[in-house]
Computed example of a mutant assay.
Amino acid sequence: MSNKKSDIKQKTLMVQGTTSDAGKSTLVTALCRWLVRQDYSVAPFKPQNMALNSAVTAEGGEIGRAQAVQAKACHLAPHIDMNPVLLKPNSDSGAQVIIHGKAIANMEARFYHDYKTTAMQAVLVSHQRLSEQYDLVIVEGAGSPAEINLRDRDIANMGFAEAVDCPVILIADIDRGGVFAHLVGTLALLSASEKARVKGFVINRFRGDIGLLQSGLDWLEQETGIPVLGVLPYLHGLHLEAEDAINSAQPLSNHKQLNVIIPVLPRISNHTDFDPLRLHPQVNLQFIGPDQIIPPADVIILPGSKHVRADLDWLKKQGWQDTINTHLRYGGKVIGICGGFQMLGQLI
Rank of each mutant, 00 (worst) to 15 (best):
M1N: 05
S2H: 10
S6D: 07
D7Y: 07
M14F: 10
V15M: 00
T19Y: 11
S20V: 05
A22M: 07
G23N: 06
G23R: 03
T26P: 03
T26E: 10
L27C: 08
T29P: 11
T29M: 12
T29E: 12
W34Y: 15
L35T: 06
V36Y: 00
V36H: 06
Y40F: 13
Y40S: 06
V42E: 01
P44L: 09
N49W: 10
N49K: 00
N53S: 01
S54T: 11
V56F: 10
T57N: 05
A58G: 12
A58Q: 13
G60S: 11
E62W: 00
I63V: 02
I63T: 01
R65N: 03
A66H: 01
V69E: 11
Q70V: 01
C74N: 05
L76R: 01
P78T: 08
D81Q: 01
P84L: 02
V85H: 09
D92K: 14
S93D: 14
A95V: 12
G101I: 03
I104E: 11
E108D: 15
F111K: 15
F111H: 15
D114G: 14
T117C: 07
A119H: 08
M120W: 00
Q121L: 09
V123D: 02
V123K: 02
S131N: 13
E132N: 13
Q133R: 12
Y134L: 00
D135R: 04
A142D: 06
A146R: 07
I148D: 02
R151S: 14
D154A: 09
A156H: 05
P167V: 03
L170C: 08
L170Y: 01
I171F: 04
R176L: 04
G178Q: 09
A181K: 03
V184W: 00
L187P: 02
L187V: 08
A188F: 12
L190T: 05
R197V: 06
V198D: 08
K199D: 07
F201K: 09
I203H: 00
N204I: 00
N204E: 06
N204G: 09
N204T: 01
G208S: 01
I210T: 09
G211A: 05
G216I: 01
E221K: 03
Q222E: 13
G225Y: 04
V228N: 03
L229T: 06
V231Y: 06
Y234V: 04
Y234T: 04
G237E: 04
E241W: 08
N247L: 12
A249D: 14
P251A: 04
S253I: 07
K256R: 15
N259D: 13
I261H: 07
I261K: 08
I268A: 10
D275A: 13
R278E: 12
L279C: 05
L279N: 11
F287H: 08
P296A: 14
D298L: 04
V299R: 06
I300K: 10
I300Y: 07
L302T: 06
G304N: 00
K306V: 11
L315Q: 01
K317D: 15
G319L: 06
G319I: 05
W320H: 11
Q321L: 15
T323P: 12
I324F: 03
N325V: 13
Y330C: 15
Y330D: 15
Y330S: 15
Y330V: 14
I337N: 04
G339K: 07
F341P: 05
Q342A: 04
Q346L: 11
